[in-house]
Design a binder for these strands. Structure first.
Lengths: 142, 142
DNA sequence: GCTTGAACCTCTATCTGCTGTAGCTTGTAT
DNA sequence: ATACAAGCTACAGCAGATAGAGGTTCAAGC
């Protein structure tokens, strides 16, 4: 029987975050001691590790919910899990592309700034000037 | 005199977002018509474009606030604007690195999945397995 | 001058994914 | 028996918007 702090330490998850995952139904409701403290089994730790690993890979909580459902019903086709992963991969690739464009522009900014007064500061100038922007009205995603 | 919808269209910003920027003090309080509708000048449009462009470059609203302050007081040294930009560049580079690690892992996942049943689905297996993870307890930043 | 309807207004709630605090209770080691 | 770390609930708050309800104003056409 593991206390919440043990799960926290072993997965690098804040205690509140674990309780939050329970609240939103991502973790099962934990058993309780007579005094009301949560107690976990190894399988709960595995589930939490799965969630955290998926979060690190950038999956949304909703996607993780889908993946956990799939993994709870292991007789279905794997195609759905694969498509979630592919979608995710696509998003990551798009994000990288955008960030690389940003990086180029930021480099241009700091390269041109020679540290004199703001009046001729290239950083501010570049930010004012939208014309060299590649991704005109794109969002920079979270 | 420009209506809020015109600013919205010309900068690709939602109307509510413009009002939100006013609320948090990023945009100046707009003048009003007798009936209470906001009216803007070209300089307000420029300021909004500056904000949006900076957002697209990944600057936080706080950083943008600093940059706008600098740009409002053009006699100071440019060093500060430069340092904000450099900080931002550094963050962008870090983000790219992390995303590239994620991309590799996602590719591995989808490459190994051969579309059979969930029982032998590599996607779920990889998510369960934390050991090949490069960035053990790292956050995936927003 | 009047009517229409798109565009505006305020206010409040919601989203994602947590994190932090206050104030109290429980569990465990000595 | 006592100390105190670790647990509990409940609620507020963060960024950065976005959505909707319900009402008002502006401007163009007739």
């Amino acid at each position: 029987m593991l206390a919440i702090g043990t799960l926290s330490r072993r997965t690098g998850t804040k205690v509140q975050t674990i309780r939050y995952y329970e609240e939103i139904g991502l973790m099962n409701e934990a058993g309780r001691t007579a005094g009301g403290q949560r107690r976990y089994f190894e399988k709960d730790l595995d589930r939490l590790a799965f969630i955290r690993h998926s979060r690190q890979l950038g999956f949304s909580l909703d996607s993780i919910r889908e993946l956990l459902d799939l993994s709870d019903n292991p007789s279905q086709s794997c195609a759905e899990a694969d498509s979630i992963a592919r979608r995710q991969l696509h998003q990551v690739e798009q994000r990288i592309k955008r960030l690389q464009a940003l990086k180029r522009e930021l480099k241009r900014m700091v390269a041109e700034c020679d540290g004199d007064s703001v009046a001729e500061c290239k950083v501010l100038e570049v930010l004012r000037d939208h014309s060299e922007c590649l991704t005109e009205h794109d969002q920079i995603g979270a």
